[in-house]
């Protein structure tokens, strides 16, 4: 089970009224390499992986939900005060037609989230290597978002999130090494 703390992992500030930015940020909300995909992937894989790395998947999967909440906060702050006309001007008319100003799990191009974005192969090496790749792809996505955002306060939060991807990737690489090294075996000399 989980305990909920009613605060964000890292503060989210939005300086400019720029609803268009939400259209891009949604990639990390419901996209293939987004936080939802990451959280669901790790929390599901943890059941069928050697004990030594279950805790890691549990902790990182949980943190991904904290990231999801930060992204949601950015998107909500950018769009909650937009009128239908302002949504249209921001290029969000297709979103408005389906969702009003609600958030939804889809990517920047509007394709809805699907479980085909994630995998649980049952093979520990395959699963951990997928997780490493996912972290690198999420890091890259944050880079592209930072590159097209000119809001310094949003970028501050995005840089924090990008850094977490770097750390997660490193921890997964260590997990892979643990699985490869066979550290559970008693050594006889």
């Amino acid at each position: 089970m989980w305990y909920y703390e009613k605060k964000l992992q890292y503060p989210v500030r939005v300086r400019d009224c720029n609803p268009r930015l939400a259209k891009y940020l949604i990639e990390q909300y419901g996209g293939a390499d987004g936080e939802l995909a990451a959280a669901l992937r790790y929390l599901n894989q943890r059941y069928t992986i050697p004990n030594k790395v279950v805790g890691l998947l549990n902790d990182i999967g949980t943190e991904e939900f904290a990231h999801l909440e930060m992204i949601a906060t950015m998107i909500y702050k950018l769009t909650k005060d937009a009128t239908p006309e302002e949504m249209k001007k921001a290029g969000l008319a297709p979103h408005y037609a389906n969702h009003d100003n609600a958030l939804f799990y889809h990517n920047a191009a509007g394709a809805p989230f699907t479980a085909t974005y994630i995998q649980a192969k049952g093979d520990p090496i395959a699963d951990i290597y997928e997780d490493i790749a996912a972290e690198e792809k999420a890091r890259a996505t944050y880079q592209w978002l930072i590159n097209i955002s000119d809001d310094p306060e949003i970028n501050d939060s995005l840089k924090f999130l990008r850094e977490r991807e770097v750390v997660h990737s490193q921890r997964f690489r260590e997990a892979a090494q643990i699985l490869i090294d066979d550290r559970g075996k008693k050594q006889f000399y």
Binding site: V14, N18, P19, K77, L78, K80, D81, A82
Partner: peptide, 13 residues
């Protein structure tokens, strides 16, 4: 009447 933050970027609805 949803919560309006003093830090919201856009004029509130």
């Amino acid at each position: 009447y949803p919560y309006i933050s003093p830090l919201d970027p856009c004029p509130p609805i």
